[in-house]
Amino acid sequence: MTVALSGGEIAARLEERFPGSVVESGQDSLLVKSESLRAAAGFLKTAPGLEFDYLTAITGVDYYDYFEVVYQLTSIRHNHSLVVKARCYGRDNPALPSVVGLWKGADFQEREIYDLMGIRFEGHPNLKRIVLWDGFTGYPLRKDYL
């Protein structure tokens, strides 16, 4: 059985290493500050005992006031999982750091979120539209797209 790690415990470890990086933590997820997302992800990937080597999925959710990007992490070595979230504000030019350098599986998924939701991922090597064509106006998965 894949063990879903408690967000609180991981948050304490992250706070110890990068003070001020965690915004809040719940039973099954933790929300990190967008500026420290890259560092926190690097820590989660390599920290002994955690070693989240497998990025299961990335999703973006539009909550009108902010966009939330959800990272489902899994460790194949220890068979446990964790949900990490990050938020970005503003509807004109929301941006988050890219994690492609850590997990290559993020490549197409970040491009898809950029395409359909309009969140830019800073540091992505090839950030352009993936499923829609060049010149398509609007971002369909945003809640205000009709």
């Binding site: 080597d53 497998y54 990025l55 299961t56 194949i76 997990w103 290559k104 599986g105 993020a106 490549d107």
Partner: peptide, 18 residues
């Protein structure tokens, strides 16, 4: 295979029992 988030037969053919 793990780094690119492969799954299913592609991951298992690379020797990961997942």
């Amino acid at each position: 295979a793990i780094n690119i988030s492969a799954s299913g037969p592609v991951l298992r053919a690379s020797g990961v029992k997942w």
